[in-house]
Design a protein around this nucleic acid. Structure first.
Lengths: 231, 231
DNA sequence: TCATTATTGTCTCAATTTGTAACAATACTA
DNA sequence: TAGTATTGTTACAAATTGAGACAATAATGA
C-alpha cells in the first residue's frame, strides 16, 4: 500500500454480477465499524496494465481466474472527491491518515468495470480494510459511498445494451444449463418477463448453443436438454 | 504546462469526426519537424471535471462550444508507455525534457472520447507543440504514434454500434439537411450502401425528424425537403 | 398398468417489420 | 412542352416476431 507502488489519482471499481434465487446480485463491501458500503475497487501498480490490475483485484476477492470482464466508463467528476469518506475508512481501521496512506485522500479518477461470474464458483473474501464482502440483490442495495450508486446503474444499463449484441448471459451460469435457466438470467437482467417460445427460438436460431444430454430433475414432467455456449 | 496544475499519469485523447465530400474524416495533429502524427489530446487540471477538460481542449482546437461528445474507452496498457516518443516531441520544440516538462515522459493512462461536429463550423487550430491540425479521411490516415490507431478503430466501432441506438448522425451535419445527406452520413459511418426507400421510411418512423421547407437546388428534378432533429 | 400432471420442444398461423420495386409528383432544361 | 433526374409515397413480397396450440415426455399415484 505504499504510495510508491501505485499510480496516484487513479483507481478502479468493479461491479461484479452474480445470479441466484432468480435475482441479479452484486458484490458489496462493508467497512469495519463505519456502516459504509462500497463497490470492490483498487489501485493500479505503476508498471501494471490497467486491465491486469482489475483482474488481480477480482481474483483476490473471488478466487476466480478467467473472469468475463468489461470496462464501461471512467468517472472523473470533482463531485466524487470527498476525502472525509476515505479518512473515515482509514481511521476506523486504526490507520494514520496523515502518514503513509495520505495519498489515498487525494482526488481519484476511477475506471469502472463489470464482471459476470457464476455465483457458485465464488467465495467472497473481504480485503484488509473491509469487514465483509457480500452479495446483494440489485433491487436491495444498501446506501453506497460517493458515486457508487451511479456506477452500478451505468453498469446495469451497459449490461442490458450488450446482452443481445455480445450474448453474454451465459457467463452468469454454470457451463451447462437449461433453456429455462438462461431465460431467467435474461429476465433478471432486462427486468421483464420474456415469452418462452420466442426466447427459445431466438437462442437456437442464433446458433451459439450446443445441446447436450437431458437433465432429469426427478419432477413429473418432460426433462429439458442441457446447453452450453459454443467455443 | 507546469506539473503542479495537472493530474499526473492521466491524459485524454479525442477522435473528432467530421463529414465532407461524402467521407468521414477526423482531426489529426502533426508535430513540428518530427513527421509524427497524433490524435488531439491533453491533460486534466487537478480541480477540473474530466469531461470539462475534454470540452476545453475541443473548444481550443475547433472554436466550437456545445459539442456532441462521448467517452468510449480508457487505454491503460504498459505497451503504450514510450517516453522516447514524447521526448522527441518536446525536443523538436526546443524544450528541455529534463526540466519542467519531465512529468510528460511518465506513463499515461488515457481516457478516449469521440466528438461529432459539423465540418463547416470548424477552423482547426494547432496547439503549442504542433505544426498543424488537419482533417484526414479515416481511410487515409497517416501512421499515428503509440496506440492512436487502435483508439481510432475503437472509436469508429463504437460510433457504428451507437448509430441507431442514439441517433447521433445528425451531429455531423448542419442544423438543416436533406434526407439524402443524412443517408450519406450513415453510409460513411457504416461503410456500406443503404437502400433509399428503407432508410427514409425508418428515419421517418423513428419520429425524431422535423420537416421544414423544401430546398431548391436549381437542378432539374423534384426538390427535397429539409429536416432537422427534434429537440 | 395406466390415467394424471407439469413442463418441454416444436409447429402453426397471425401480426408486424423489412426488402424491393413501382409510380406519381415535381423542378428544371432543352 | 416534352424530357430528365430525383423525390416522397405506396404496393406487394419476404422475413421476422408474437401468441397460442399441441404432441412428447418423466414422474406420480390410483
Amino acid at each position: 500500500m505504499a504510495k510508491k507502488t501505485y499510480l496516484p489519482h487513479l483507481a478502479y471499481d468493479s461491479v461484479i454480477f452474480g445470479f441466484s434465487d432468480g435475482e441479479l446480485k452484486i458484490l458489496i463491501m462493508e467497512y469495519h465499524n463505519t456502516g459504509l458500503f462500497a463497490l470492490p475497487g483498487g489501485f493500479v501498480q505503476k508498471t501494471e496494465n490497467l486491465n491486469d490490475a482489475v483482474l488481480r483485484g477480482l481474483h483476490e476477492r473471488t478466487g476466480i481466474t478467467n473472469i468475463y470482464l468489461e470496462q464501461f466508463y471512467t468517472f472523473g467528476d470533482m463531485a466524487r472527491f470527498k476525502p472525509e469518506v476515505m479518512q473515515t475508512l482509514l481511521e476506523a481501521n486504526g490507520i494514520d491518515a496523515k502518514g503513509e496512506y495520505k495519498w489515498m485522500l487525494d482526488r481519484f479518477v476511477t475506471v469502472a468495470y463489470y464482471a459476470l461470474i457464476n455465483y457458485k464458483d465464488v467465495t467472497p473474501r473481504p480485503d484488509a480494510l473491509s469487514d465483509s464482502c457480500e452479495w446483494y440483490p440489485i433491487k436491495k442495495l444498501p446506501k453506497l459511498i460517493l458515486d457508487h450508486k451511479l456506477i452500478v446503474e451505468k453498469a446495469i444499463q451497459t449490461l442490458r445494451d450488450n446482452l443481445d449484441r455480445k450474448l453474454v448471459g451465459g457467463n452468469l451460469l454454470p457451463k451447462k444449463f437449461t433453456m429455462n435457466e438462461l431465460q431467467k438470467v435474461y429476465e433478471a437482467i432486462l427486468g421483464a418477463k420474456l415469452r418462452r417460445t420466442t426466447f427459445q427460438r431466438k437462442m437456437l436460431a442464433a446458433d451459439v448453443l450446443k445441446r447436450h444430454e437431458k437433465q432429469f430433475s426427478g419432477k413429473a414432467h418432460k426433462a429439458p436438454y442441457l446447453y452450453s455456449f459454443k467455443k
